[in-house]
Amino acid sequence: MEKENEDFVVSVDQHHRVTSIYNQSKQKNLQTSKGVKIGEDYSSVIQTYGEQFKKLWFVEGYSKGIQYQDQSNGIILEFFFNDNKLALIELRSKRE
């Protein structure tokens, strides 16, 4: 279930395993393990996470998105932007 004013949205599968976590928080102190925060510039995210990303097309509600895949751990990290500012971070399992 999603609530409009919540910072995080967590999805689980039928076995109650977490399949995705969305960070929509406007709090400046919440960040990824590499220090990326909501509101950062597009180029800053790429500088931090590297050039090995996939551009996402048709990202409803956002001007653009990029995806990083961690094959060894089976996870996907996605960043969504509006006006080149980070608006949403999504971490999810590739095993969905």
Rank of each mutant, 00 (worst) to 15 (best):
E2T: 14
H15R: 06
Q24K: 10
E4Y: 11
S20A: 14
Q31N: 03
E6Q: 09
N29M: 10
S25N: 09
V9G: 03
S11I: 11
S11P: 03
V36Q: 00
I21T: 04
Q27I: 06
I21W: 07
E40K: 11
S33F: 14
K37R: 12
Y22K: 09
D13V: 03
M1H: 09
G39L: 01
D13A: 04
V12F: 15
N5L: 12
K3C: 08
H15F: 15
F8V: 06
G39V: 02
T19I: 12
S33L: 14
V9T: 10
V9D: 00
E6S: 06
Q27W: 00
T19M: 07
K28T: 10
Q14I: 09
Q27V: 04
K28H: 09
V10F: 08
Q24L: 10
K37I: 04
G39R: 01
S20T: 12
Q24V: 00
D41R: 06
T32I: 01
D13H: 03
S20G: 10
I38E: 10
V12C: 11
M1Y: 00
K28G: 12
K34Y: 05
K28E: 12
Q24P: 08
I21E: 03
G35R: 02
K26N: 14
S25W: 02
E6G: 12
S33Q: 13
V12R: 12
G39Q: 04
T32H: 02
V10G: 06
Q31L: 07
L30N: 08
S20I: 08
D7K: 04
K26G: 12
I38L: 09
N5W: 13
V10T: 08
T32W: 01
V9E: 08
V12N: 07
S25T: 07
V10W: 10
V10H: 08
E40R: 02
E40T: 13
K34Q: 14
K28S: 15
E2H: 11
R17D: 09
N29A: 11
V10S: 05
Q24I: 06
D41S: 13
E2Y: 15
S33Y: 14
N29W: 05
S33C: 00
Y22L: 10
N29R: 03
E4H: 05
E40F: 07
Q31P: 00
D7G: 04
E6V: 02
V10L: 12
Q24A: 07
G35Y: 01
S25L: 05
H15P: 04
Q31Y: 01
K34R: 11
S25K: 03
I38G: 05
V12A: 10
D7N: 13
S11W: 15
S20V: 09
D41H: 10
L30T: 13
I38Y: 08
I38C: 08
M1R: 07
V36P: 03
D41M: 11
V10Y: 08
Q27T: 05
Y22T: 06
K28P: 08
N5V: 00
T19D: 04
E2S: 11
K28Y: 05
I21F: 08
Q31F: 02
K3V: 05
S11F: 13
Q27E: 10
S11T: 14
G39D: 03
R17V: 00
I21V: 11
Q24R: 14
M1E: 09
M1I: 12
Q14K: 12
I21Q: 02
K37E: 11
N29S: 12
